[in-house]
C-alpha cells in the first residue's frame, strides 16, 4: 500500500466518523434524546480517532498518528463497554432508543473495536511511510482532504456549542432532560 492509498483510506475513515457524529446529532435533535456524560465522552473519543487520521493527512502517514487514533479508540471502547455493562443485566433499561436493535453505546463499542483492528491492519503496511521522511512539516493537501478537515472542525465546533448549551460550564447531569443554558 503506498502513501496515496493510505491517505485516501484515512480520509474515508474520517468521513465515516463524521457520519456517526451526524447520526448522534440526528438522535439528539430529531428524536430529542439528550446525550449523557458517557455519550459525550464517546463522542470525544470518536473525535480523537479522527484526529489521528487528520494528522496523517496533514503531516503524512506516521505510526505516531495511528497511535493517537488507537489510544482514543481504546478509551472510547472502555467508556462504551462500561455503559453496556451498566444496562446489560436489566432489560429495557438502556439509555435512549435503539437503532437497528442496539443502543448507540453498543454500536459505539463495535465501532471502536473495529477501528482498533483496522488501524492495526493499516500499521502492517511498511510502504506507506516511505514517501514521508520529513513527517514533522505540513504537506500539500488536496481539496478532498481540506474538505474532510473542514467538516471535522465544523462538527467539533458544533459539539462545543451544543455541549455548552446542555451542560453549561458545570458538570453534565447524569440523565439530562433539557438544555441548561436555555432554561435560565
Amino acid at each position: 500500500m503506498n502513501a496515496s492509498v493510505a491517505r485516501n483510506i484515512n480520509a474515508i475513515a474520517i468521513l465515516g466518523i463524521c457520519g456517526i457524529m451526524l447520526g448522534a446529532y440526528y438522535m439528539q435533535f430529531v428524536k430529542g434524546e439528550f446525550p449523557c456524560p458517557l455519550c459525550l465522552l464517546q463522542r470525544l473519543a470518536m473525535l480523537g480517532v479522527a484526529l489521528g487520521a487528520m494528522m496523517n493527512l496533514r503531516f503524512g502517514i506516521h505510526p505516531t498518528h495511528y497511535g493517537i487514533s488507537i489510544l482514543s479508540a481504546v478509551l472510547g471502547a472502555c467508556i462504551s463497554a462500561r455503559q453496556v455493562l451498566l444496562h446489560i443485566n436489566t432489560p429495557g433499561s438502556g439509555y435512549g432508543s435503539a437503532v437497528y436493535g442496539m443502543h448507540l453505546y453498543s454500536w459505539a463499542l463495535i465501532v471502536f473495536v473495529v477501528a482498533i483492528v483496522l488501524i492495526g491492519l493499516m500499521l502492517l503496511s511498511d510502504t506507506q511511510y516511505e514517501e514521508y521522511d520529513d513527517y514533522k512539516s505540513t504537506k500539500e493537501v488536496g481539496w478532498f482532504a481540506a474538505l474532510v478537515f473542514f467538516v471535522v472542525v465544523l462538527i467539533t465546533s458544533a459539539n462545543v456549542a451544543t455541549t455548552c448549551l446542555e451542560c453549561g460550564l458545570q458538570q453534565c447531569p447524569e440523565n439530562p432532560t433539557s438544555y441548561k443554558i436555555l432554561d435560565k
Binding site: P37, L51, T163, C167, L169, Q170, C172
Partner: peptide, 13 residues
C-alpha cells in the same frame, strides 16, 4: 468541563 474538553479537541485540530 465537557464543553472544555471539546474545545481542547477543536484547538488541537
Amino acid at each position: 468541563m465537557m464543553a472544555g474538553l471539546f474545545l481542547l479537541f477543536l484547538i488541537i485540530m
